[in-house]
Amino acid sequence: MEKYRQSVSRSEPGCVVILLDRSDSMKLAWGRTGASLAEGAALAVNNILLDMCIKATTEVNAPVRHYFDVGIFSYGARLTDPGEGVESAFGGALAGRGLVPLPELAEHPVAVREEPSIDVMPVSARMPVWVDPVHGYRTPMCQAIAVAGAHVFDWAAAHPDSFPPIVVNITDGMVTDSPYDGATLEDWVRRLTSIETNDGATLFFNVFLSPFEVTEIVFPSDPTGLPAPGPDLFALSSPLPPPMVDNARVDGYDVRPGARGLAFNVGRSTLLRVLQIGTRVPDRAR
């Protein structure tokens, strides 16, 4: 039976986990936007969460539908217990929570405030905020995958017929904690992607941010020509399953056979588009 075909519904919700790099280098300016990498990444994450809430909003007098369970785990600087480590990036009523059902997420942003456009446009809009920009310390990516993996494992066991979990790692740097707990980054990713539902294995996508205006590489089918750490990230990234290949092609990307869920040296608007492509699961909607 073909994998990665399950559509989301309330009885078979999806699971999206974002791993958010909050290491020190995220303080660098992101291109000409005037904002830091951390600010741009937080804005993109808030946008994608709003996107998901909007998609699950279907009618007046009806709650946001429980189509997804969502987790945001940050690694690098911690907010709750200052220092280096991994924690849930949610604040306010959701502080410390792992995976949160979408209706609850929609109910509990930490703030609703004026935010700049994701593109470099002279506009802004009032929008809910779930994640704030933070940066500091090194890049404990292995630990982040370990923490997220525990939540993903429990979720997949409880949702055997759902579309498999999608884990998106947003980073600008090199892992600093491999090996962690006796296992390398490759080992941790292998453990994560061995977690399956009946519809397929957990997907692990990587988005590598760049402070410089260099050529973006999105969904490559070959590691050739990728500067370091591109080839390593390519090897770690899951192949894009057919529905996401379709999403990417609809968005205008030239996706070749064997394309991986990797975006390299991306700018701000590309980050949001990649998140949208990587979190859109099969649907009959036009």
Binding site: K55, E59, A285
Partner: peptide, 10 residues
């Protein structure tokens, strides 16, 4: 009605 629309049943 489109699944991802708003008020699609209506």
């Amino acid at each position: 009605g489109a699944t991802q629309g708003f008020g699609s049943a209506r």
